[in-house]
Amino acid sequence: MTTPASTTTTPARFLLLGDSHAACVGQAARAAHLSFAGGPVGSGRDFLGPFFDVRGTGVTLRDAEAQRLYRSALEALGIRVLDRLEVPLVCTFGFAAHTVATAENWAVHRDDRGDYLPGFLDSELFASLIRATVRGALAFYDHTTALGMRVLALMPPQRVPEMSDPRVFFAAQEVIRQELLARGVEVVDVRARVTDATGLQRAAFCQAGDTIHGNLAFGRLLVAELLDRGL
């Protein structure tokens, strides 16, 4: 899922950069004949800690393959540096909440019964831990919004694999959402349309055969929301 989606000869409507959660968005956009550049450039955990460097007016991704895919996306738009981007940036960086919520990483904060102290998941301590975990993604949003570009971040499928703690998943993604809103990022949130009473993603919007991704139907909802926002 790390091959970028190609554009057509029609001018691209947006640049898509993200992890594997961006794949269904690219698939849906292509199915709708919506021209864009980019696609997934790595896995979710690759974009939590520091993953890029600013060199002059450009951004360089530290992973060689991610950098190659990123450069290919820019070239498809006819630009060499990100600050020349003239279309909105659509991104999934930082929203790999299932990775952030890996249960064993939070064991130190649970008691012998597996419970968290009352208020922990709503505390400033928890929020600071999440901010530290996703500091690379937050730095990327800081950089792109400071350039004055329009940035839209896509909330992830509401799917919690066995390795992850659902309580941390839901609390962490809310911290991330609020952090991005505070930076002027537009957060695309279709949870009310795809979840059941438990807050988890309904099967109709889940990719068959895996435990974390949304399917084409989910991607279509996200693309429809992007179009509603004028992309």
Rank of each mutant, 00 (worst) to 15 (best):
64 A>N: 09
66 A>K: 01
68 R>G: 07
70 Y>D: 03
70 Y>C: 01
70 Y>P: 00
71 R>K: 11
72 S>G: 14
73 A>F: 03
74 L>R: 07
76 A>L: 12
76 A>R: 14
79 I>A: 07
79 I>T: 01
79 I>Y: 05
80 R>Y: 05
82 L>K: 06
84 R>K: 11
89 L>V: 04
91 C>E: 06
92 T>Q: 09
93 F>T: 03
95 F>I: 08
96 A>G: 05
96 A>H: 10
97 A>M: 12
97 A>P: 00
98 H>V: 08
99 T>R: 10
100 V>K: 06
103 A>G: 01
103 A>S: 14
106 W>H: 00
107 A>P: 04
108 V>F: 12
110 R>P: 10
112 D>C: 08
112 D>A: 15
114 G>N: 12
115 D>V: 09
115 D>F: 13
116 Y>K: 12
118 P>W: 00
118 P>Y: 04
119 G>C: 08
119 G>N: 09
122 D>M: 13
123 S>D: 13
123 S>N: 09
124 E>V: 14
124 E>H: 13
126 F>V: 08
127 A>K: 06
127 A>H: 10
130 I>Y: 00
132 A>F: 02
133 T>I: 04
135 R>Y: 12
137 A>V: 07
138 L>E: 05
140 F>V: 03
141 Y>V: 07
142 D>S: 12
143 H>L: 14
143 H>N: 02
150 R>W: 00
151 V>W: 07
155 M>V: 07
156 P>Y: 12
157 P>C: 04
158 Q>D: 00
160 V>F: 00
160 V>E: 08
166 P>R: 10
169 F>R: 01
171 A>R: 09
174 E>S: 06
174 E>W: 03
176 I>D: 09
177 R>L: 03
178 Q>T: 14
179 E>G: 04
180 L>G: 01
181 L>R: 14
184 G>Q: 04
184 G>R: 04
184 G>F: 06
185 V>G: 04
186 E>R: 10
187 V>Y: 06
190 V>D: 08
191 R>N: 11
192 A>N: 11
195 T>V: 15
197 A>D: 15
199 G>R: 08
199 G>H: 08
201 Q>V: 10
201 Q>A: 14
203 A>E: 15
204 A>L: 11
205 F>D: 09
206 C>E: 15
208 A>Q: 15
